[in-house]
């Protein structure tokens, strides 16, 4: 019995883990952006080139709760490295970091109302008003 329970638990964990680990990069539904490649996403969030494939300017948003996981998945860097990266660009006057948003709800609100905004969410939390352009696996 114990063994069966343990097997069930492991099965549940293996099923649950990938879903929990995925981060979805999202835009406003119907904004005319189909997909982003990984390098598009790096260009947008790292401030190298902020343009969406449909020609609109891209306005990236960072969500405090998910930020560490997001950058680990996107560029394999921790937050200290991301901060150091932005310190160089900000204090040389070259570029600005993404707008910082406290909660996923706030981010969802901003993205759903702005066709230029690009945010990220735990992939299970994507609603109808958002469109997933890239999934990052952890």
């Amino acid at each position: 019995m114990i063994r069966v329970r343990a097997c069930l638990l492991i099965a549940l964990l293996t099923l649950a883990l990938p879903a929990m680990a995925d981060i979805a990069i999202v835009v406003k539904a119907g904004s005319g952006v189909g997909q982003l490649t990984r390098s598009d996403a790096v260009n947008i969030f790292m401030g190298r080139y902020r343009k969406l494939p449909n020609g609109n300017p891209a306005l990236p948003l960072d969500v405090a709760a998910l930020k560490a996981r997001f950058y680990r998945a996107l560029v394999n860097k921790n937050l200290a490295e991301i901060n150091a990266y932005w310190a160089r660009l900000v204090f040389s006057g070259e570029a600005s970091p993404p707008q910082q948003v406290a909660t996923a709800a706030e981010m969802r609100q901003l993205v759903a109302h702005n066709p230029s905004a690009v945010g990220y969410l735990d992939s299970r939390e994507v609603g109808d008003d958002l469109h997933v352009v890239l999934i990052l696996n952890e």
Binding site: N83, A84, A87, R88, S92, E94
Partner: peptide
Amino acid sequence: QLADSRYVGYAY
């Protein structure tokens, strides 16, 4: 490269 951020110690 890096010349215009050479006083920002946190960056390097």
